[in-house]
Write a protein that binds this DNA or RNA. Structure first.
Lengths: 208, 208, 208, 208
DNA sequence: GATGAATGAGTCTTCATTCAT
DNA sequence: GATGAATGAAGACTCATTCAT
């Protein structure tokens, strides 16, 4: 006589279901706009169950959802780096291309970014977390590439003396992502044009 | 200093009061998080009055608030441009400096940007408006500077052949602004370092 | 330098403007649904002016509006009665026809009736007023016709002994009106069919 | 008699509670005048629960409340009809008596009718529903009685040839109900007198 | 683990009414 | 007489959260 809806699942099955639903809902509606009911509905569970898994409530679910999005996007970058194919210049170009490509193909990454931007001051710890887990490593990676280029003689040595350079190098890719989110594919600046201009700018500015 | 219960003001006095309060509240809380009650309280008026000035309600007030933020930024840029002081290179540097300076000094501008980023897909018309009234003109302005530089022989002629260049040139300033919003002054990348790296990068990449 | 909108009119011009607007608005929206703003708008005056003419507010305006609708609908009936054309039977038929005809041609009368029906228990005095000014006289008129018919020998003498007869005689016309209001012209019972059946029924039942 | 703060009941218990409270409140105040808070209070539940059962809100609750009033009236009429006691004339009289009796004894029925009359044009579907579910069947019932009477030779054959007759036959009862609602028991026409006059009129007009 | 009935504080919004101009 | 800015109370509705089952 069990209710047909009532299926007991192990936490490691239910939890991802719930987190996925939460990510999608938060992504579409923002933090304040997403309702627990809607998240539960999307996950196919009852409202009450959300509080079983996240007794502290909505804010906690949000934190968990955001955290669940930060996957090692670095795997690919490090693979490219490891293969050290050709010149540093070609390497740089490959990295830039990869970064732009992700923007097109990985909506989940965009979502993450957007959520963090808009909810950052309601959840300072999330911004902090993002800075520590995503931003800093990425800057470090760029710095490593620059150092390798300088050491091999391809890049100008001054590149290592400017602490703000990695940020400047990365910024256009991130802005391209933000413009896409804001304006839609139709109205946002042309991605290919930006990628080419970006790569060209870097090569000219950094070459020894 | 008595606060009379009912102070009748001319609309051209009240309206800015209300808009200012709305901008502040939306900035702090986001669209969904800002409450009409709080906006009214901040403006020192009764809730009902908001609907007298914006019968269409919260969304309309939001639009008006965003629009009220736009004008001041361009005035300064055009002033700099008009005073065509010195070389194009110096001009570019002046513009870059101004842009970074605004990010520090004008919280209103940051607010505007953050609101647009986070609420863009709930208010597509605002994103559209921003693109048309702010972004496009700014790109055009950068392009004008580049063209002047090329014509004077200071900049490389290829600079004019890359349609994505203005976006790449501007991106670091905007990202600096976003990082500040997200991470706070303490944790965000160092503004001065970025400005210097940015200006240096441009000069190296663009010089003939 | 007078504001162009500000036209001072004599009360006997303004008052009908306001009452007409009120009747229309109350008719369309009901008492609770009609807003003072909308009435003022329809009348082409400012909200405040309504309170100048009706200091006691909305309820008072409603009462005045309803009262303004009760015009002597009896003029026509009494004209028919005075012309005593032909037999009482023909007279009765003429009166029935007239009653049904009014239902089609005079939306203002229907409105009045509907308002009274639906707001009667919020405004008991209005129901009272209606009963005294409209209903009672109408019953009396029917009774007079019956008496004349009995005296002339055309109608059965028992017709005068049934105190409920005038109500029964009138009811179908009023119900026809109510059904029209409720169901619209399309779905409500056929007016012509009712009129014929009604007249026939009366003639058969009353003839000596 | 302690009233526990949170009493969980099965929906098939709560729903009628809520509908009953809604009918009463709508009856007294009309649609616009009835407040969700008051309905919840009358039902002894929190406001929010109303939206649990009627997510579409007030209008939906209103529709459900009206619908919940319909069924009982027909049962009795059909019982009388089934017990085809005595002559058709007696049958007609029994039905007329029943109809008048209901108006006195069953406030729920009056309420229903009043609601439909006054809110018909705000809820066209309800008027439609009323016409289809209540009015048409009632007319059909009257027509069936007439036909049976004609076939048995008690009624004049012409009674079947007048399509408007059922409406005319029923109208006085309904008007009696409306007058009662409008004017109160004290001021409205005498019910007994109407019933007698009504029955007598029908018998005289319909007898062969 | 899982459900969904139940709550109540909070949100946007409306509107009769007041009153300075 | 006339305006419309300003108010405040009240209304419909939402939603995070609780808890009996």
């Amino acid at each position: 006589m069990a209710s047909p809806r009532r299926q007991r699942l192990r936490p490691d099955v239910r939890l991802p279901q719930i987190l996925d639903a939460a990510v999608e809902e938060f992504a579409v509606r923002g933090y304040a706009g997403a309702s627990m009911t809607a998240i539960a509905g999307r996950a196919g569970v009852a409202k009450g169950l959300l509080y079983h898994y996240f007794p502290a409530g909505k804010a906690d679910l949000f934190r968990a959802a955001v955290r669940s999005c930060v996957q090692p996007a670095f795997a690919e970058a490090e693979a490219i780096l490891a293969s050290r194919a050709g010149s540093r210049r070609a390497l740089l170009r490959a990295l830039v291309d990869m970064a732009y490509a992700r923007l097109t193909g990985q909506p989940r990454d965009q979502v993450l970014f957007r959520l963090i931007v808009s909810e950052a001051d309601r959840f300072p710890e999330i911004a902090e977390f993002y800075q520590a887990e995503v931003l800093s490593p990425t800057f470090a990676l760029v710095r490593a590439v620059l150092r390798a280029g300088v050491e091999s003689g391809e890049f100008r040595p001054e590149a290592l003396e400017q602490p703000g350079l990695p940020q400047v190098v990365l910024a256009p890719v991130l802005m391209a992502s933000i413009w896409r989110m804001m304006l839609g594919e139709a109205r946002s600046p042309d991605l290919d044009a930006m990628r080419d201009a970006h790569a060209d700018l870097l090569v000219r500015a950094l070459s020894a």
